[in-house]
Design a protein around this nucleic acid. Structure first.
Lengths: 115, 115
DNA sequence: CGAATATATGCACTGATGTGTATATGCACG
DNA sequence: CGTGCATATACACATCAGTGCATATATTCG
């Protein structure tokens, strides 16, 4: 968790690895095939991803299975939330979603609807 | 728009500048005060932010006013969407819990006290 | 035990990038 | 005009990060 989320995501290869792991748990050699760099490089990227919380590691014999973890994504989402109002006039996310549900029941009488 | 969003956000000073611009349009000298680096550096960061679409620039006499633009944030949000399912399951549980609590509250109000 | 396989790490290199200093450019105003 | 202020840019520099190569570590299997 020592390296910050943005730093980690800045590298394209790392994003590719993350993308790859979306399919589910993978061992290093699988990732190597898709990453286009040497095994040593992948190993180091996985280390960074691990230390920053993006992936978890589970030993399976001599292999190591890596999988995505939600926390950093959530963190990024949190950061992004500060700026949501920039493009989302109406917030329909998170608690706002709940709020909306309540208002649905209550009928929309205000000018809350956009033009 | 040549530099990619993640690359741009990787630099802490740049994120600080973005944060600063959340308060609204600012001229360079304002940003300099808050950024903690020299004016030339700020100028270059603003250039990068501009080229990547994070900010817009509007000349005002000899000054230049920079302001946040939504596009890159939206782009980041789009990227993030691929991974939302990673943690939204949990979030939904959270929402459900909240909902439940609210219903509880409502019930309590309707029927008087129970426990 | 020794060989084979999977993954991690030390070393060296290189390209990219953030920064300061100094200077250029652009605008305003006497 | 010419002086002053706001901002941009050229240059030099130092640091860092990603990479390959070679090698170490760990585990499985014969």
């Amino acid at each position: 968790m020592q390296t910050d989320v943005f730093q980690v995501l800045a590298d394209p290869t790392r994003r590719l690895i993350i993308q790859t792991l979306r399919e589910g748990e993978q061992q290093v050699s699988d990732v190597v095939e898709k990453a286009g760099i040497h095994q040593s490089g992948v190993s180091r990227h996985l280390r960074i991803l691990s230390e920053s919380g993006f992936v978890s590691m589970r030993p399976d014999g001599q292999r190591r299975l890596y999988a995505l973890r939600p926390e950093p994504f959530r963190e990024l989402d949190g950061w992004l939330t500060q700026y949501r109002q920039l493009w989302e006039a109406r917030l329909e996310r998170f608690e706002a979603a709940l709020e909306k549900k309540k208002q649905q029941t209550r009928r929309v009488k205000e000018r809350g609807t956009r033009e």
